[in-house]
Write a protein that binds this DNA or RNA. Sequence first.
DNA 1: ACACGCTTATCTACCAAACGGTAGATAAGC
DNA 2: GCTTATCTACCGTTTGGTAGATAAGCGTGT
Lengths: 191, 191
Amino acid sequence: MPPATGRRRLPLAERREEILKAATELIAASGFKGVTLEAFAEACGMTKAGLLHHFRSRDDLLIAVLERRDELDLTTVVDTLEPVSGPAASRIVMTRFVRRNLGQRSLVQLYTVLAAEAVDPAHPAHDYFRTRLREGRAMLEHSLLSWHPRPDLAAVELLAFLDGLQLNWLRDPDIDYLAQWQSFAGRFFAV
Amino acid sequence: MPPATGRRRLPLAERREEILKAATELIAASGFKGVTLEAFAEACGMTKAGLLHHFRSRDDLLIAVLERRDELDLTTVVDTLEPVSGPAASRIVMTRFVRRNLGQRSLVQLYTVLAAEAVDPAHPAHDYFRTRLREGRAMLEHSLLSWHPRPDLAAVELLAFLDGLQLNWLRDPDIDYLAQWQSFAGRFFAV
DNA sequence: ACACGCTTATCTACCAAACGGTAGATAAGC
DNA sequence: GCTTATCTACCGTTTGGTAGATAAGCGTGT
């Protein structure tokens, strides 16, 4: 066990991971604009300069956080991919997604807060969210194609509801995320 | 007509109004954290110090903007109050609300961006949104009471969908806000 | 009409703190 | 002892905010 005080030296990859994890939580709590470079550094027990050894700039850190999240999410999603289709199957997949979010409150917050902040075209993550959400919508639309009369409307509707539910859940943790989802899904997936 | 250059002196109430209007647009575009005091001032052709003569601090300006919006919104809503109840009536009222938002894009953006940003408890507008949304939900729940089997779930669901739809509409203006609403409402208000 | 003076909206000049980032010294771990 | 992760010290800029000077607009008296 290293001494509690003094400097701690970690291998590159390990420290990078630690920084990304801490940064994720901070951004989730206060948005990207709300966290200073020093706060990022301090959160994992180092100085600004030390952090900048791993990420060229503050903006650089942000996109690294996002890309890392995508990486992790992708492996999860791929695991849950199913060849079947139809309303029942779609509902099951989406419900699994909702359940996963339920256990990752701070991550949901990261995306929700950041996505709203990035509505501004000048935000460093604006383009990231723009393309990412477009892709997500296209994927969902594709999976609704086989059974829904208006997959285009439905895809937007489903994503919008989830976005809004997440936002409200963050504002008021008493909201029963899962029950709200089931209530919506009951009508949405009804044939 | 006053000279284009040099200082312009306005009566108190008039200048306050002008500042609030400009600030509203700026916050809508970039969030509150994204706009500096000087930017607020410059937007209505004055200096920081001049602006601070009307509002004690930057945070003060923010809550003034929000309270002003509430004031304006309230008069509009009161005009559209109707004594009737039932799903059809609720749908009409909400649709009118949606139509109004449709014509006030930057205002929708103000609330959407700011509300997400204010999820952070340290945000100056956090309490404002907390109580405001609670009140709104209670009002809606009350109006659903007469006909909906689960007014509590339904109120959250409706507000969540609208929040999410607005957010997505801001991200992608090509989304047909009204059509999306009608699609959702068709199921939501079905007996 | 015009000048004078009062009120106060606005400005110029300034400040301390916080910010993102850089250069070079230092030490941790293999 | 070598590599390099980390630190100390510093810089230029931007930020929110303050103190005191300046002038715009109005009322009033002649």
